[in-house]
Design a protein around this nucleic acid. Structure first.
Lengths: 336, 336
DNA sequence: CTGAAAGCGCTAACAA
DNA sequence: TTGTTAGCGCTTTCAG
């Protein structure tokens, strides 16, 4: 018992033995709990270091906290989500929490399995980025773990929400194109997007339809699966089908980038506006006009909301972030 | 005991009570273990469904498996890693394993904390993408969990390796530029990259230096932190400092893309070759010549190696994937 | 084929 | 201030 432990990881028991104290004492030091003398703290800390002790998260999970925050992401290839993660990690620095990402599977109920996996792993807090999950499932999840939903347009009293102003953003995009004289403006969005659903893209679509209608213009909606490649194909097909659109408002930048590929290849003139303002949008090779959503700040805020919940807040919070149009070459007459 | 459970999650005990069997029986059904009658399986399955039962991963972790595979990633913004994750998820489909991603923190020993966090969470298998971690730490980790290292140039008998042919890839890049008549070729790589270290970028740097030397040419190495933005700045500075380079071999595509931004802004002529062939490289806005590494296949293979370990393999495996040059506009004389 | 029971490493009362 | 102890939910012998 007192000689070097073999291969296996040191446990709290080993540390206690090494330091000549009880397990409870070690646990208290670990958790910074009240009632430990400096002398004991020192001995325990030393023993932990010598044994290279690391607490088992599974064992901790059995009793409560796992010091883990999970984030479900729909698409790793979308740089906007990278902005969110970066912000979240920044806000987590200095706390004992670890961030883990569960990538959403594709298909219907996209993100549902990832969310479940995270709940099964007893994360202390959960951030979900627009999963295609029904309200009931969300409420059920929120009942067992603090949840922050990204981009929901509606309000819940079960979970917190961090969102951008999707309606305002869509309006900015549309007005920008109107100001440039465009009247035949297409909108590229995801499949089966319902303008009345509470998702970000639904809001953008809704506002697009409303704005076109208000201007007495005919809407033209293209659909594609998520991702640059699918957007490329959808746009290629729209062009092949003889679209008369002179401008395109894409539901997010990755879609816009895919669309630009088809536009470049077909060598047609079409102004493009994206959404999110991913870093690439400002690259001179693209010069993509986009609606800037402050992803880093939104990610950081999501983490803060979780930390507040840990600290005891029980009322739901909804935070909406302003967005901003960044005009670039993709919507300047000469740029095509 | 027999009426509806309140708010709390159903446990194996609840299922057993509901089905009128023992906990052990439920556990066996859960794990598909030997020795359960069809009748019992059916009753148990029904009870699980009725109670919406999901096993606690933490409790399972206490006794062994967590059905979780962890992957440490250095940079979410790099699309090559997305290729890897996509491949890994594909290989995991249909297995009971869940993939979780731990993003590496920045700074020295980048990725170390993420790796530790994953080990603390008792993942069943670990995939690490070029963390800046010393051999000892890796061996220690590999002693407690099956580990697949991405991109290591050296061989280990503690862990498996999946890598691309970095030396061959660098040679392809260099010869391509030589063939175009370039003699002043710069190489953009990460800071403190040691040509003799066992990392992918080290190998690319080493081969670059060797190739230039063999051709009797003067090497010119630029350094930047990882990421498009840093590459942009480094390139801008190199240009401002009056580099005579007519071509640039960037250690990966994200760096190349950042460099192209500086090149475009400064309006100079410089051929660019990247590495990885991320989807964006073939976008007409870039037309970036790149070395294609089959990221999806590599990610899938990494998962397979882990599954083989779970199945009992104990000898270390090292797999090297061929790479291929994709010539595009960025290295055609007219493209700059 | 089924059940009883030990125990994984930790936290949190409660006692001393 | 420190120690004792009862579980948390699951897997896994070992009996029946």
């Amino acid at each position: 018992m007192t000689d070097a432990t073999p291969r296996r990881r040191a446990t709290i028991e080993d540390v206690a033995a090494r330091a000549g104290v009880s397990r409870a004492a070690v646990s208290k030091v670990l958790r910074d709990a009240y009632g430990v003398s400096d002398a004991m703290r020192e001995r325990v800390t030393a023993a932990m270091a010598e044994l290279n002790y690391r607490p088992s998260i599974a064992a901790r999970g059995m009793r409560g906290r796992t010091y883990t925050i999970g984030i479900e992401l729909p698409d790793l290839a979308n740089h906007f989500f990278d902005r969110i993660v970066r912000g979240a990690m920044g806000a987590l620095a200095g706390t004992p929490y670890q961030l883990i990402i569960a990538p959403a599977e594709t298909g219907t109920r996209r993100g549902f399995r990832a969310l479940e996996a995270l709940v099964d792993r007893q994360v202390d807090g959960l951030i979900a980025v627009s999963p295609r999950v029904d309200e009931d499932a969300l409420d059920r999840i929120a009942a067992s773990v603090p949840l922050v939903m990204f981009g929901r347009l509606d309000t819940s009293n079960q979970y917190d929400v961090v969102a951008g102003d999707d309606l305002g953003g869509a309006r900015l995009a549309l007005e920008h194109l109107f100001g440039l004289g465009h009247t035949r403006i297409a909108h590229l969005t995801l499949p089966d997007e319902d303008p009345n659903a509470p998702f970000p893209h639904s809001g953008r679509l809704r506002e697009y339809l409303a704005g076109m209608a208000a201007a007495g213009l005919e809407p033209e909606v293209w659909h594609s699966d998520d991702g640059t490649d699918f957007a490329y194909r959808a746009t290629r097909e729209a062009i092949a089908a003889g679209t008369q659109a002179t401008a395109l408002f894409a539901a997010h930048d990755e879609l816009a980038i895919g669309a630009m590929r088809a536009i470049a290849e077909a060598d047609v003139e079409m102004a493009v506006v994206g959404y999110d303002d991913v870093p690439l949008a400002s690259h001179p090779a693209f010069g993509l006009t986009s609606i800037d959503q402050p992803g880093e700040r939104m990610g950081a805020r999501a983490v803060e909301l979780l930390l507040e919940r840990f600290a005891g807040r029980t009322t739901a919070v909804r935070e909406v972030f302003d967005v901003e149009l960044k005009a670039r070459a993709s919507t300047r007459p000469s740029a095509g």
